[in-house]
Each structure stands twice: as C-alpha cells, then as structure tokens.
C-alpha cells in the first residue's frame, strides 16, 4: 500500500499533508517513528492511574501530531479527549472518549503498518 492509498483507507487528508510537508518519504518517516513507539499505551495508562495532567499532555501531543499529519479521525478523537482533560478534573464520559481515540489509533496504526517501508 502506498501513502496515498493508506490515507484514503482511513479517511485521512493526504492532499493536505502532502501540501504542507512536500514529500511522501518525509511523511512516512514521521508516521513510522510515531506508531513504532505506541504512544496510545502511555495515554491509556495515565488515565487508568488517574494521572490527569500527564493524560492531558499525552492527549495534547497526540492531537498535535495527528493535526500535523492530517490524520483526521485521530486528530478529532484526541482533540475531544484533550479538552475533557484540560482542567485537571476529567469530565464525564472520558472512558468513552478514550475508546474513540483507541479505535482511531488502532485503525491508523494498522494502516501505517501496511505501508511499504523502504
């Protein structure tokens, strides 16, 4: 699967990321690096342990990366969670929001895993 197909398969915005970053290889490099380290685990662990400030930073960083990479679904789900965690006291429904993030993360991770590595 090439990058364009990968983005299409998860409803992400390839045109936008290509326009901003200018090269498939650069985009792929950062995608591989990000999903190789399983950032989601850190977020989930922080929420389970009620470390809300850490959880906010994880969610915030995930949102920033997803926005930059135009990973539309992951950016949307992590943004909702990020706002729920912003004030240090989580709003109701955090577990549902986390489930949405996980779903988007897993789908994206899988699609990136199917990308051809050079």
């Amino acid at each position: 699967m090439n990058l364009k197909e990968c983005y299409a398969s998860i409803g992400a915005d390839y045109e936008s990321v290509f326009l901003r970053m200018g090269s498939d290889s650069v985009i792929c490099k950062f995608l591989f690096r990000y999903f190789d380290r399983n950032e989601y685990n850190g977020l989930e662990k922080a929420i389970c342990e009620k470390r809300w400030k850490d959880a906010f930073i994880y969610a915030h960083n995930m949102k920033g990366f997803a926005l930059n990479m135009s990973l539309t679904r992951l950016a949307g789900a992590s943004s909702v969670l990020c706002e729920a965690l912003r004030n240090g006291q989580p709003e109701d429904g955090v577990s549902g929001m986390l489930a949405d993030v996980k779903s988007a993360y897993v789908i994206t991770e899988k699609a990136v895993g199917n990308l051809e590595r050079e």
Partner: peptide, 12 residues
Amino acid sequence: DDVDINRDLLRA
C-alpha cells in the same frame, strides 16, 4: 518541545 518527533519535524 517535549516531543522529539515534533522537534525533528521542525529541525527538518
């Protein structure tokens, strides 16, 4: 930036 990927994005 606390995230190395973000720093690398800007470094690039």
